[in-house]
Design a protein around this nucleic acid. Structure first.
Lengths: 355, 355
DNA sequence: ACAGCCGTAGCAAGCGCTTTCTATGCGGTA
DNA sequence: TACCGCATAGAAAGCGCTTGCTACGGCTGT
């Protein structure tokens, strides 16, 4: 059978309690004893029984990171950064203690899965949960989430939002890091307007997502401020945050409104699809049509022409969320921090053609 | 305090044993009783204590997925696919039972972290572990891995390799799905040769990785077969699997060997960097230089020109690995399956200029 | 010289669940 | 009518660990 604490204790000729204390390092143990125990652990190749330990201590070293789409670098970057801070192996400490198992859970954007993962994590008595990405704006789901999170919180789980606005009715949350989606969107549209564009199409994300709404609002704010707010509905197309959707939506947009001179996409992935659609129509970027994205994912700079977009410090935000989840960093005042979004002017936008 | 099994039992006026049996559905319970229990569970909002359950049952519902770089879609796609099969929430069953918590662990390509994650998973008595991506070829590390995996296996953990060749000395593994990296690499180089290229540069991945070696070998096989094998060392540059590395390596390559007419990159991400470098030098793709990648990640088709590459069925492989890990699919004969790689001819390759 | 401490180590009581074994009530059979 | 077996429920013994409390020397202080 597998080696237990008792086996180690027997070999080291101490009590199980002592072994436990050596392993946890939370109680004074004479160094000679400690050494003996450590050797026994080594000799027997002992591996702690996690469930037993969690049960007895009523805590676990699991930290959950919820993402909408693990195949999307937007989430991958944040999750990776968070995970590296949360430690798991090689967090630099070398010592146990900080050794948490950071696990990422892929909700696929489905509200049910989000809730179920939360239950699963609750079941495991997770030490912390990081929720990334935009939230669904369905009131029923939000309420359910609030309830769930409250329960998690008072079971001792730390909760951090990353790239997601604070959920109303949830003060159980340790901290919320929100991206300035609205501001970023405003700036990129202002940039287009400043270049001389007047007729600007918008390829939005899925409806009922905070991210979608905020970016769209920022865009429209800029349009309004420039007195360009008109038949917004007809130059806006919604769809999922993927390349295919950007392609289809842009084709649709171009057909519906052939006079647009610029297309703003909800994110870079969508923008890539938009570029493909523009070319498909035989139009050049940026000479005939400007295209802009959002997020500044790694591939965006390599697009041809390089994509004008809004840079979100995904890595930094993820890392900070990880630290907050670990209690290694003090939460921002009020528990909420807004993370800036910076305009990256590149080759995919230019003044419109003068017809 | 939190609700326990006993609380539910009391409310349903049955014994804890009965509640447990209802929840696990592995023992006959009169339906009237079952109903009463279920209602009590609902009323009290009971959530099973995972650690306690795992301890008593000596099994857990955790499944680990190890990846080298979670921010890289190559891994994200496989991990997402695996996770969706492993279930976690919404695996369609609706019922518990199949409800495993699939967690992805980011090793960052570090051997120590890989090992430590395995220990962590061993600690949690994980039900299964899926290892993705190429392996390190360091004998010491391989030996350590073999030992670790053997231990996991005989603690009852199912082990599946995905996109990684079987580790010698490990028969504890349920199955290994290996990509035909060599064949894919051979085909793409043959394609270039058929186009008329004679002087072909190769931007390889990090040394000591199986993936790197196999792709490089495939490439060289093709070169040799065409009688083009010469000073391979001078047209090969190694580096990490990232865009930056592709850029730097290609610049270096072009400086060292200005007469190459094609560059084969170790993967698509690297290829993107290579494209940037080629353009930086004022050369056109594919007129002046052809560029080829590997993997066919989603963005590759959107590159301009679209990237010629080798398609790896990442999603399918990940899903299959997930199923194997769950025991939902019977392992291939011998435990090893090689997954084909298909050449995707696109715009980034063309015949060389005739000088 | 004795009381009181401090530094260590052990005892033992759980943590909340699963599961074996036992008990009970019922219907069917002789 | 009495017996046996089946279907169902309960009792209780752990699973392997943590931790509050107790025990025990040797030191210090007066």
């Amino acid at each position: 059978m597998t080696v237990t604490l008792a086996d180690v204790a027997a070999r080291a000729r101490v009590s199980p309690a002592t072994v436990s204390r050596v392993l946890n390092g939370n109680y004074p143990v004479a160094s000679s004893t400690r050494e003996r125990v450590l050797r026994a652990v080594d000799d027997l190749d002992y591996v702690l029984n996690g469930p037993a330990s969690s049960l007895a201590a009523a805590t676990s070293d699991l930290v959950g990171i919820l993402v909408n789409d693990i195949a999307d670098p937007f989430f991958g970057i944040m999750a990776g950064a968070a995970q590296s801070e949360i430690g798991g192996p090689g967090d630099g400490s070398g010592r146990a203690g900080g050794e948490k198992l950071a696990v990422v859970c892929n909700t696929g954007g489905s509200p049910e899965r989000e809730l179920t993962y939360l239950t699963l994590l609750q079941r495991q008595r997770a030490a912390a949960v990081v929720l990334t990405g935009g939230a669904l704006e369905d009131p029923a789901h939000q309420a359910a989430m609030a309830v769930k999170l409250a329960k998690l919180a008072d079971a001792g789980t730390r909760i951090v939002f990353c790239g997601r606005p604070p959920l109303p009715g949830t003060d159980a949350v340790v901290a919320a890091l929100a991206f300035d989606n609205r501001g970023g969107a405003r700036r990129i549209t202002e940039h287009l307007i400043a270049l001389g564009h007047r007729r600007i199409g918008y390829v939005a994300g899925p409806v009922e997502r905070t991210t979608t709404r905020h970016r769209l609002e920022g865009h429209r704010e800029a349009m309004k401020a420039a007195g360009l707010y008109g038949d917004e509905e007809s130059v806006t197309v919604h769809g999922p945050y993927d390349r295919r959707s950007g392609y289809d939506a842009t084709l649709e947009l171009l057909r519906r409104e052939p006079d647009v001179t610029a297309v703003v996409a909800a994110n870079d992935t969508v923008a890539l699809g938009a570029c493909a659609a523009v070319r498909e129509r035989g139009l050049r970027i940026p000479e005939d049509i400007s295209v802009a994205g959002f997020d500044d994912l790694p591939f965006s700079v390599d697009a041809v022409p390089a994509l004008t977009t809004v840079r979100l410090p995904l890595f930094e935000a993820g890392a900070r969320a990880g630290r907050l989840a670990m209690g290694k960093e003090t939460p921002p005042p009020g528990g909420i921090a807004t993370i800036g979004a910076e305009l990256m002017e590149r080759g995919s936008t230019a003044p419109p053609r003068l017809d």
